[in-house]
């Protein structure tokens, strides 16, 4: 079965991938320090560790899975969204990626579906339409169980 997929445009380039296959989760665009094996999100040119500060860094893709460190549910519409899903509010979480970074992004789902320690997966979420394209953000969704 084929579905017509509208082109998806990131709200800001340089933070996450947009897979050609809509079934595939996006990955976060990060940096690895080649001297200290420290990983960062978002991308940066210089390793932040005070004892390192190396410029020997490389672009890497992070995720798409992580562990929920903390969460909240914001009782306000998501700023800049015309998606009805965001009208009543939205979840926000801190997610620990297996490579090391802790990231802070919106969550898919309701308050009662979030649990510290659960595994989540990144997904793209439409914020609004722009002509024939969808403007998307990246967020994390709790996996079953």
């Amino acid at each position: 079965m084929t579905t017509t997929q509208r082109p998806r445009v990131p709200i800001k380039p340089g933070y996450f991938t947009i897979p050609d296959d809509p079934q595939q989760p996006p990955k976060l665009l990060g940096t690895k320090c080649n001297d200290f094996s420290e990983h960062y999100f978002p991308r940066r040119a210089i390793c932040a560790r005070p004892e390192c500060l190396s410029e020997n860094t490389a672009d890497v893709e992070l995720g798409p899975r992580g562990t929920l460190y903390s969460y909240t549910f914001v009782h306000l519409p998501l700023f800049g969204s015309s998606n009805m899903e965001h009208a009543e509010g939205y979840g926000v979480g801190q997610v620990d990626l297996p490579e090391g970074p802790r990231v802070q992004l919106p969550l898919a789902g309701k308050q009662g579906e979030f649990k510290i320690g659960q595994t989540l997966e990144a997904e793209l979420n439409t914020l609004r339409e722009d002509g024939a394209s969808d403007i998307v953000i990246v967020r994390f969704r709790p996996l079953e169980g």
Binding site: T72, V74, F79, V92, G93, Q104, I116, I137
Partner: peptide, 17 residues
């Protein structure tokens, strides 16, 4: 990308943790 993380949300994450 940061626009979704209001100050209230950020500190609420402290509270939940």
């Amino acid at each position: 990308m940061e626009d979704a993380i209001l100050p209230a949300a950020f500190f609420a994450l402290w509270a939940t943790r």
